[in-house]
């Protein structure tokens, strides 16, 4: 577009020829104003700017937002950094508009927050809350919260990049406490949303072995982690108290490839609430041909029969 505009200007300059210089310049300026490309709108990452000052030791929850500038987007990623004046205490996901995280926002070892996620069907809003940072002020001075990397893709089926700008947040950290709403750990008592794991297999991963996929949301404090158990029986009370849970990330390859076990998944939110769901075994009858199970049953019955026989003959004597 700019190349074409430049060519237009050159042609016009030639056309006006040897005429009045000011007339030339005026004419060119008018053409530029008329034909220059419209300002390309860009999506903008920004931070909740209601807090502009904090005192040492105070904590505050700062939201990370996106304004899509009336464009429909469906994928975004980035890295959030804070100046050393802050310590990042937590990352919360309540009320996030992102339903599927590729990389859930979390505090990295280098103190940054990396995130990437998608919104199936697209998203358009000026106040899209991605997640919130809980920051504790540690060192006085002007401290920034900013995005060091960012990428936003359009909902066009091609993953086209959208121009993106970022607006950092500047907070003045002083020695005295400020009148701000300090962060309190969520009083969330609601378990995560119900969900329905699926057991599938595909020749492109895990060498075509069965694996389970799962995902859910927690609208108040956000999902913290998932755990899994594969059991022969399902007893909710015992499972709730059990210590045999394994941390799990979707997709998770099953230990029992015969699919004769219950696959039980526990989703835990950041307030410790949890929801346990199960997938029924597909080959329950195979349990009964399992050699270990057969020997177990034979042993028990042998003992019982031996016991009855002993009692019977003893009575007879």
């Amino acid at each position: 577009m700019m190349a074409r505009l430049t060519w237009l200007i050159l042609v016009l300059w030639h056309f006006i020829g040897q005429g009045n210089y000011m007339k030339k310049v005026f004419f060119i300026i008018v053409c530029i104003l008329i034909f220059s490309p419209a300002t390309v709108s860009a999506a903008e990452f920004y931070f909740d700017n209601r807090i502009t000052a904090m005192g040492i030791g105070q904590t505050a929850e700062i939201g990370v937002f996106i304004d899509t500038e009336n464009q429909t987007i469906n994928a975004l990623e980035g890295v959030v950094k804070v100046d050393p004046n802050f310590e990042i205490r937590a990352v919360t996901l309540n009320n996030s508009f992102v339903p599927l995280w590729i990389e859930q926002p979390q505090i990295m070892p280098n103190g940054t927050i990396k995130f990437s996620g998608i919104v199936p069907g697209g998203f358009t809003d000026s106040y899209g809350l991605l997640f919130s940072l809980v920051l504790e002020a540690r060192i006085p001075g002007d401290a920034r919260v900013y995005m060091s990397k960012s990428r936003v893709l359009a909902h066009d089926g091609l993953g086209s990049a959208v121009n993106v700008t970022t607006k950092p947040l500047l907070i003045d950290i002083g020695l005295e406490e400020k009148d701000i709403r300090s962060w309190n750990a969520s009083d969330d008592t609601t378990p995560p949303e119900n969900f329905f794991p699926e057991i599938v297999r595909d020749n492109s991963i895990f060498d075509n072995q069965w694996f389970v996929i799962f995902n859910t949301q927690d609208k108040e404090s956000g999902i913290d982690y998932y755990e899994i158990q594969e059991t022969d029986y399902f007893d909710l009370d015992k499972l709730t108290e059990s210590n045999d849970w394994q941390r799990a990330v979707s997709p998770y390859i099953l230990s029992d490839q015969s699919r004769s076990s219950y696959v039980v998944i526990k989703a835990v939110d950041k307030s410790g609430n949890f929801r346990i769901v199960r997938v029924e075994p597909q080959n329950h009858e195979k349990k009964y041909t399992n050699k270990k199970y057969i020997w177990y049953q034979l042993t028990i019955w042998t003992i019982l029969i031996a016991g009855f026989v002993y009692i019977f003959f003893r009575k007879k004597r």
Binding site: N74, A75, L100, S116, P120, G122, G157
Partner: peptide
């Protein structure tokens, strides 16, 4: 094995990144 799927179903750049997930989100 997955490379064939990536070339047919996604953006055929030999890797899985945000662009592939964006295509998935659209469809």
């Amino acid at each position: 094995d997955f490379s064939d799927k990536e070339s047919q179903q996604l953006n055929n750049d030999g890797e899985i990144d945000l662009v592939d997930f964006s295509i998935m989100a659209f469809y």
